[in-house]
Write a protein that binds this DNA or RNA. Structure first.
Length: 622
DNA sequence: GCCGTTTTCGGCCCGACTGTTTTCAGTCG
C-alpha cells in the first residue's frame, strides 16, 4: 500500500503560496485540554491531507481524544511530570507538549500546520466536513480568511458554487448548509437534555413497547444506558421475532413527525421536540447489539483491540473468528463479555477508564446499588425559620413517611442556615434552638412504629461565605447533629482563593461532616468552581469529611469524573437528593448512577451504613 | 506516532451511510 504514504496529489505547494500571508499560529502555554485536543486534531488533519502515514494521523487523534477526556488539566500533569501517564501520549508527543508548556509554541506543529491554508482548520468543526473535503473546498473556492471561512462557505453553498466542484454535487450543498446549521446550534449547546428527562421519556416508551407480547426485551442504548449526566438523542433497543409489528406499534406512539422508518427500526420526533430512535433485533443476537450501541466509543474501540489480539472481531451482530469467518451470536451481554473471558462490565463504567483491564484481571469493583442506600441526609422541609435560601414544600412527617416507604433507616433534615444579614448572632442561636425543639416535638408525636423504623437527624446546610467562614455561629452548632457546608455565592473566584475558601470551611468545626454539591455546577447553566480538587480531596480524607454526590437533576454534583478521582484517593461520599418536596426523594437513583460511573462501591458511600454505624461516623468520623 | 496475553517490531476497531460514483472515498459514531 505505497499509495498511503505518498504525497497528496493536490498541489498544496501552490495553495500554500496563495495563502502565504496567513501563516502565523496563535496558541499559548495556558491552553485548556479542549484547546490542546483541537490543536492535535488540526495537526492530524494536516497529516492526513499531506498523505502522511495514516497511523500517525490516528495516533494524533487518539491522543486528542484522550486529552479531551482527562479529568485533570494537562498542564497540571506536565507540572507534576506525569505527561507519560496520559494514554496515547508517547515520547514524541510528550516532548512536543513539553515545548508547548515551556515556550507557548511547538516548532514541529507550526511547520506542519503552515503547509496548508490556515482557513481549513475552522471548517473541521462543521459536521460532515473532514480534512479532505475542507481542503478541497478551501482550495477550489480560494477561501482565505480563517475568521470568516464558515460564513464564506455558507454563501458559496447558497449561490451554488459548490456543485460545480468535482466530487461535489447539489446534495453536497444541502449537506454543507445543514452541517453549518448544526455547527451554529452546537455553539449554543442547547440540545442536550438532563438525565432524568431522558430517563423519563425512555421509560414511558419502553413501557408502551413492553405492552406488546411480541416484545421480548426493551432497553435504552447509548449515553442514557450509561447514565451520563446529559443526553443527546434517545436510542431504544427491542428484541423481537416480529420486527415489522413492533415498528408499526412504535410509530403510533404520540409524535409530531415520523422522521424515518425501515426494516431495522424507526425514528420519531416527539411532541416535546426530542428525537427517539428504535432499533430491533432478533433475540439470539440482542446481546451483541446492546453491547455495540451502548458504547462508549472508547470502550468499544479498546474492547475490539483486545479482541483482535485474540483472533476475534467484534461487531453489532456477534463475535467473528477472524481465521474462519465464523460468527457467534449472543442473546445476552453477559454471554458476549464471557466469550471474551471477562465478567460483565456494567454500562455506567464503559468509558475506557481501565474497566477492561480491571475486568480481565478480576479487579472490577462491585458497584453500589440503589438498594444499598440506608438514608438520605439532605432535604429541605416547609418549616419556615427565616432561612437564608429557599425552603421546601413538604412537612417533615411526609419526609419520614416517604423514608419508611423507601426502606431507609434514617434521614437528615438539612434546611439552609438562618439568614445572617438581618439577625444578630444571638438571635440566630435562639432560632436554631427553637428549630431543634420543633423538629423533636414533631418526631415525638409520631406513631411508635414509624419512630422505630426511621431515625431523624437534625442537620443544617450552612453557607460557605466568601472568605471561607461559615454562616452559622459556633454556639448554634450545639443544636444540630451535623452540618453540610455548601457554596452558594462567588463561584468565579480564582482557583487559589476558592481552594483556600473551601478548606477553611471544611476544617472550621468538627460537626462539618459533608461538603454539599462541591463544584456548584448547574448543568447547561453554570460551570462548576475551579478548585484544586486534589487538595480538597486530601483535606476531606484527612478530616474524614464526605463529599456529597447531589442527585438533584440539574446538579449531579460531584460530577462522575471527580468521583472517580476522589475515590482513588480514598475519600468517602454521601449520596443525597437535596429534596425540596417529598417526591423528589425518588431522585436518589440518579445520584447512585453518578457514584457508579465513578466506580464507587457501597463501602465508599457513608449512607450505606446502618443507623448506628452512620451515627458513629457522624460523631467520630470512623 | 503509540504500544505490548504477538512486548522493542509490526501491527494499529468496525461497519453503516451518503453522495458521487460505475467500484469507492469520506465521514461518522
Amino acid at each position: 500500500m505505497l499509495g498511503l504514504y505518498t504525497t497528496s496529489p493536490l498541489a498544496h505547494s501552490m495553495i500554500a503560496q496563495v495563502f502565504e500571508e496567513d501563516k502565523s499560529f496563535c496558541y499559548d502555554r495556558d491552553m485548556t485540554n479542549l484547546e490542546i485536543a483541537e490543536l492535535l486534531r488540526n495537526v492530524a488533519a494536516a497529516y492526513e491531507i499531506l498523505g502522511e502515514n495514516p497511523f500517525k494521523t490516528i495516533a494524533y487523534q487518539k491522543a486528542a481524544d484522550s486529552i479531551e477526556h482527562l479529568t485533570s488539566d494537562l498542564k497540571d500533569m506536565w507540572d507534576d511530570g506525569k505527561l507519560d501517564t496520559v494514554p496515547g501520549v508517547g515520547s514524541a508527543l510528550a516532548s512536543h507538549l513539553d515545548e508547548l508548556f515551556r515556550t507557548g509554541k511547538v516548532k514541529h506543529f507550526d511547520q506542519v500546520l503552515s503547509k496548508l491554508p490556515k482557513s481549513i482548520y475552522p471548517l473541521l468543526l462543521v459536521p460532515g466536513l473532514g480534512p479532505k473535503k475542507a481542503y478541497k473546498l478551501v482550495s477550489e473556492l480560494t477561501l482565505k480568511d480563517s475568521k470568516t471561512v464558515i460564513a464564506d462557505l455558507e454563501k458559496a453553498a447558497q449561490t451554488h458554487k459548490i456543485a460545480a466542484i468535482v466530487g461535489f454535487g447539489e446534495k453536497s450543498e444541502e449537506v454543507i448548509l445543514s452541517g453549518i446549521e448544526s455547527y451554529k446550534r452546537g455553539q449554543i449547546k442547547e440540545n442536550r437534555m438532563m438525565l432524568p428527562e431522558a430517563d423519563g421519556i425512555a421509560r414511558d416508551i419502553i413501557n408502551y413497547l413492553k405492552k406488546m407480547p411480541e416484545v421480548n426485551h426493551a432497553d435504552p442504548l447509548g449515553s442514557l444506558r450509561r447514565q451520563v449526566a446529559t443526553i443527546g438523542d434517545i436510542d431504544i433497543a427491542v428484541a423481537t421475532r416480529k420486527p415489522a409489528v413492533v415498528i408499526e406499534h412504535f410509530v403510533k406512539y404520540p409524535h409530531q413527525k415520523l422522521i424515518d422508518k425501515g426494516a431495522a427500526g424507526a425514528t420519531l420526533l416527539l411532541n416535546n421536540g426530542r428525537q427517539v430512535d428504535l432499533r430491533v433485533q432478533k433475540p439470539e443476537a440482542y446481546g451483541a447489539m446492546l453491547q455495540y450501541f451502548t458504547g462508549s466509543k472508547h470502550h468499544n474501540i479498546k474492547l475490539r483491540t483486545y479482541a483482535v489480539g485474540r483472533g476475534l472481531s467484534l461487531n453489532e451482530y456477534g463475535i467473528k473468528q477472524v481465521k474462519t469467518g465464523k460468527l457467534t451470536e449472543f442473546a445476552s451481554e453477559e454471554g458476549f463479555y464471557q466469550a471474551l473471558h471477562m465478567p460483565y462490565i456494567p454500562p455506567e463504567i464503559r468509558e475506557d477508564k481501565g474497566e477492561i483491564e480491571a475486568a480481565v484481571s478480576g479487579r472490577l469493583p462491585k458497584l453500589i446499588e440503589l438498594s444499598d442506600i440506608k438514608g438520605d441526609l439532605h432535604m429541605h422541609t416547609n418549616y419556615n425559620f427565616s432561612s437564608s435560601h429557599d425552603i421546601g414544600a413538604s412537612h417533615v412527617k411526609e419526609h419520614l413517611d416517604k423514608a419508611a416507604a423507601l426502606g431507609y433507616e434514617y434521614i437528615g433534615i438539612s434546611d439552609h442556615n438562618p439568614s445572617i444579614s438581618n439577625q444578630t448572632q444571638k438571635q440566630i442561636v435562639a432560632v436554631m434552638k427553637k428549630r431543634k425543639e420543633w423538629y423533636e416535638q414533631q418526631y415525638y408525636s409520631l406513631k411508635d412504629g414509624l419512630k422505630k423504623r426511621v431515625h431523624l437527624l437534625i442537620m443544617c446546610e450552612v453557607d460557605i461565605l466568601t472568605d471561607g467562614k461559615l454562616a452559622l455561629p459556633d454556639e448554634a452548632f450545639e443544636y444540630v447533629d451535623a452540618a453540610i457546608v455548601s457554596l452558594h455565592s462567588s463561584f468565579t473566584q480564582s482557583r487559589k482563593d476558592i481552594t483556600k475558601r473551601i478548606i477553611t470551611a471544611l476544617t472550621s468545626h468538627p460537626k462539618v461532616r459533608i461538603f454539599g454539591h462541591p463544584t456548584g455546577r448547574l448543568l447547561a447553566r453554570r460551570e462548576g468552581v475551579d478548585a484544586d480538587w486534589p487538595e480538597v480531596f486530601a483535606t476531606c480524607k484527612k478530616h474524614s469529611i464526605a463529599l456529597e454526590i447531589n442527585a438533584y437533576p440539574d446538579r449531579l454534583d460531584l460530577p462522575d469524573s471527580l468521583v472517580y478521582e476522589a475515590r482513588k484517593e480514598g475519600v468517602k461520599f454521601c449520596i443525597d437528593t437535596d429534596s425540596h418536596e417529598v417526591d423528589q426523594m425518588d431522585m436518589m437513583r440518579y445520584g447512585v448512577s453518578v457514584a457508579r460511573r465513578g466506580w464507587a462501591t457501597k463501602h465508599d458511600i457513608v449512607n450505606t451504613l446502618g443507623y448506628n454505624e452512620f451515627k458513629s461516623w457522624l460523631q467520630k468520623g470512623v
